[in-house]
């Protein structure tokens, strides 16, 4: 009897080991542990045993049942895990397929440049002033020390609507208007971005409409050295800490002294290349100390107040920064162009 039980245990365990499905396993359970199974049958024959042998046999039979049951459980867990595994394996996807696109547009490159400059100067305490694109001759020229018949008016042939009204040729009239609004009192610190217009035929380097950004600081003790310090911060933040700057004397009717600022050429590192016309320097902006006539016309006492102003072209800066070769791209709005300005620098 004892042998028979041991035999049954070994037999059942072997079958369990060989089984490959939950159904097979269940069949084994029913076959060995069921009411009609061989173990039950063996136990039924226990009546023939002596009183001493009976409990020993009973304990052995339970031991065998438990061994089989525990083995069944382990095997079942194994088979279940394998089944899940197989199911998941069948669900495999191609992770290299493209994702569902998320729609997003982006800033036009000019806005990108303008906002960068705006933010930079806001950080230095400037506010943003805007003004009309259709301007009076007075604010566009006369208030800026460009009386009628001034030869420098030639430099910027303009779109007139009437003799006294024109499309502004620069954003400087915003400065003139802001100063006038201040009625000769107190400090001013502004940045003026906006569209301007000149009578130019559109080609790779000219556009009859373009953007400008100007800055103006007026106060009781504003010095040329302040201009130099401000421009240096701007240039390094905008173009990189390793850029060098230089100021060159220049001429603008509304500033005196006037300067132009160059930055060292990034492409050739200052050795000269076609981008910097072999000079190693690239012209970035015009600036100067506000001309006393301009201060006086706006109601400021030029003996007490001084100021500096500067102006630059976002198109030019974008062209240099991103290597754009034709100014017309900015206004054609080819989507293949616009899409290139999404990413962070």
């Amino acid at each position: 009897m004892q042998e028979r039980l041991k035999e049954l245990q070994a037999e059942a365990i072997q079958k369990i080991e060989q089984s490959s499905s939950l159904k097979e396993l269940n069949d084994i359970r029913v076959a060995y542990l069921g009411k009609k199974g061989p173990i039950t049958e063996v136990l039924r024959g226990m009546g023939k045993l002596s009183a001493e042998e009976r409990p020993i046999m009973g304990a052995l039979a339970n031991e065998v049942r438990e061994a089989i049951a525990s083995r069944l459980e382990t095997k079942q867990a194994e088979l279940e895990a394998a089944a899940v595994q197989a199911k998941l394996a069948s669900e495999t996807i191609d992770v290299t397929l493209p994702g569902r696109p998320v729609k997003a547009g982006n800033h036009h490159p000019l806005t990108r440049i303008i906002e960068e400059i705006e933010d930079l100067f806001i950080g230095m305490g400037y506010e943003i002033a805007e003004g009309p694109e259709v301007e009076q001759d007075y604010y566009n020229f006369e208030a800026l020390n460009l009386p009628k018949g001034h030869p420098a008016r030639d430099m910027q042939d303009s779109f007139y609507i009437t003799e006294e009204i024109l499309l502004r040729t620069h954003t400087s009239p915003v400065q003139a208007r802001t100063m006038e609004k201040h009625q000769g009192k107190g400090p001013i610190k502004i940045i003026c971005p906006g569209k301007v217009y000149r009578r130019d035929n559109d080609d790779a380097t000219h556009s009859h409409q373009f953007m400008q950004i100007e800055g103006l600081v007026v106060g009781e003790n504003i010095r040329m050295s302040d201009l130099k310090g401000t421009l240096e911060i701007f240039a390094k933040k905008m173009f990189g800490e390793d850029r060098e700057i230089r100021l060159r004397p220049s001429f603008f009717p509304f500033t005196e002294p006037s300067v132009e600022m160059d930055i060292s050429c990034k492409i050739c590192g200052g050795h000269g290349c076609s981008v910097c016309k072999q000079t190693g320097w690239i012209e970035i902006l015009g600036a100067g100390m506000v001309h006393p006539n301009v201060l006086e016309m706006a109601g400021y006492d030029s003996k007490k107040y001084t100021g500096f102003a500067f102006g630059m072209g976002p198109e030019r800066i974008a062209m240099l920064k991103y290597g754009i070769d034709d100014i017309r791209h900015f206004y054609t709005d080819d989507i293949r162009f616009l899409m290139q300005f999404a990413k962070h620098e």
């Binding site: 806001i122 230095m124 506010e127 610190k189 050295s225 230089r246």
Partner: peptide, 19 residues
Amino acid sequence: GYDNIPKTLPVGTASGKLS
């Protein structure tokens, strides 16, 4: 020579912001 002019910043504290 502009190279010889010092670099300073305007005196005074103004805070800037967008309207």
